[in-house]
């Protein structure tokens, strides 16, 4: 493997690792609002590293440009979707578990 490929593989593997971490957080976190933070790890660091790795492999081609647009799409769209979720949950009266509450006590 060439050095570029090794670097790309490391980036891809790291991105995958952060995705797994985010998903583990999705399972471990006690309530909806805290789970949101875990999901945003997937959408930022996980997705970012995977896309960076692929861009490195594609070099200066159209595919790189498309991946860049994909990255921008996630960059703009994911906070919007997350905020919409949070706001909808808030308006539906889902109460966040806060620090003072009994810890780890979930419904």
């Amino acid at each position: 493997m060439t050095p570029v490929e090794i670097l790309a593989m490391v980036l891809l593997a790291l991105g995958g690792l952060f995705c797994v971490i985010g998903a583990v957080g999705l399972l471990r976190m006690p309530d909806f609002y805290t789970r949101m933070h875990a999901a945003s790890v997937i959408e930022t660091l996980g997705a970012g590293l995977v896309i960076a790795g692929l861009m490195l492999l594609a070099g200066l081609t159209l595919a790189t440009a498309k991946l860049a647009i994909l990255g921008l799409l996630i960059f703009f769209a994911s906070p919007t979707a997350t905020h919409a979720l949070a706001k909808a949950a808030h308006e539906r009266g889902i109460v966040p578990v806060l620090e003072g509450d009994a810890s780890g006590d979930e419904k």
């Binding site: 609002y33 933070h37 906070p79 919007t80 997350t82 905020h83 949070a86 706001k87």
Partner: peptide
């Protein structure tokens, strides 16, 4: 600003008002 807060993991804007946001943070 609201989207920047949401985009950084650990903080999410829940309500974006005119002069202040309601933000949920994972840690103090």
């Amino acid at each position: 600003y609201a989207n920047s807060i949401t985009l950084t993991p650990g903080t999410v804007t829940i309500v974006a008002g005119r002069d202040e946001f309601l933000v949920h943070a994972l840690t103090r």
